[in-house]
């Protein structure tokens, strides 16, 4: 009797021990998120205190690396730059990507569908420096030739970012279309709908939330992309609205990567504040996705 009890006790103790280990590892993610937010915020504090919200959200950008507190550090140029570049990235990228997803799931010959899909998934891994290098050596010179500008700017960044978010949006949209029950397609075709009518009236509406999530993730990818953008956006300190396509400007990420190496004091703290703005962008996107997918459950 006693032996059995002890065995059960041992057994339970082991299961409890395992559970503690598992919960601890799962908690590490919580710790990581909080540490990241806390440190980025802490490092931004000096800038928020000394430059102030008004100074940070202005167009004034005159850093003084030798005497940081004397400079002015407005972030509006890179914030608008990020928005402008992302705007074009999604305007070019999303229709192309969703169209490609429809092509892969519905229009391509059966025999090559999975080959194309797999190909796009593999090419999704092209590192961003490489796309940036391609942009710098092929795209920017091409734009320079046709526009009589130096080729750097929102247009170049938008195209590069569109290419970067293309595979992301495509493969998530394909997943959304594939997740639809096949009965939906059959029902529509059986009523005499053409392929296009089926896609546009039954399948895309049914998959719209998945496709929307794909686009939001694409936006996230574009906003946070660093190296490729830094290589083609021009890194100039002048505001470029979405319609100023060929004006060299900066984005939040390009500013961060350019300045982080050699800034000190408040200047350095401003770099972290730019990181904080990126974090806030990311959180907004997460909440957007949550809202979209919560709606689905209803």
């Amino acid at each position: 009797m006693k032996r059995i009890k002890r065995a059960i006790n041992n057994f339970q103790r082991k299961e409890v021990g395992i559970k503690i280990i598992l919960v601890t590892s799962a908690s590490l993610s919580i710790l990581a998120v909080f540490m990241i937010i806390a440190y980025i915020f802490r490092e931004s504090l000096p800038a928020i205190r000394t430059v102030g919200f008004k100074g940070l959200f202005s167009f004034n950008w005159k850093p003084e690396p030798a005497n940081p507190p004397a400079g002015s550090y407005g972030m509006l140029v890179p914030i608008i730059g990020t928005i402008s570049a992302t705007f074009w990235a999604i305007l070019f990228g999303a229709p192309l990507a969703i169209g490609t997803a429809v092509y892969i799931d519905q229009m391509a010959p059966m025999a090559i569908r999975s080959v194309i899909n797999r190909g796009i998934e593999i090419l999704a891994g092209i590192p961003s420096v490489i796309i940036g290098w391609f942009g710098l050596t092929m795209l920017v010179p091409a734009l320079r030739n046709v526009t009589a500008t130096n080729g750097f700017g929102i247009m170049a960044a938008g195209v590069v970012l569109a290419v970067m978010s293309l595979p992301t949006i495509t493969s998530i949209s394909v997943d959304a279309l594939r997740a639809l029950p096949p009965e939906l397609e059959e029902a529509s075709l059986a009523m005499g709908a053409t392929r296009w009518q089926t896609v546009s009236r039954a399948l895309l509406p049914a998959a719209r939330r998945g496709v929307l999530i794909a686009v939001i993730l694409g936006i996230g990818r574009a906003v946070g992309e660093t190296m490729a953008v830094q290589m083609v956006v021009g890194n100039a300190n002048q505001v470029a609205w979405p319609w100023e396509l060929f004006k060299p400007t900066s984005t939040l990420t390009s500013r961060i990567i350019s300045d982080i190496g050699e800034s000190t004091g408040v200047f350095r703290s401003v770099v972290y504040t730019e990181g904080l703005v990126l974090l806030i962008f990311a959180m907004v996107l997460i909440l957007a996705i949550r809202m979209v997918s919560r709606e689905r459950k209803r």
Binding site: P181, E183, L184, E186, A187, S188, L189, A190, M191, G192, A193, A202, P205, A206
Partner: peptide
């Protein structure tokens, strides 16, 4: 397919 309609095994209304 418009002339020959079909009802499936599992009810499959559109969402």
């Amino acid at each position: 397919r418009r002339n020959v309609g079909m009802v499936f095994q599992k009810p499959n209304p559109f969402p």
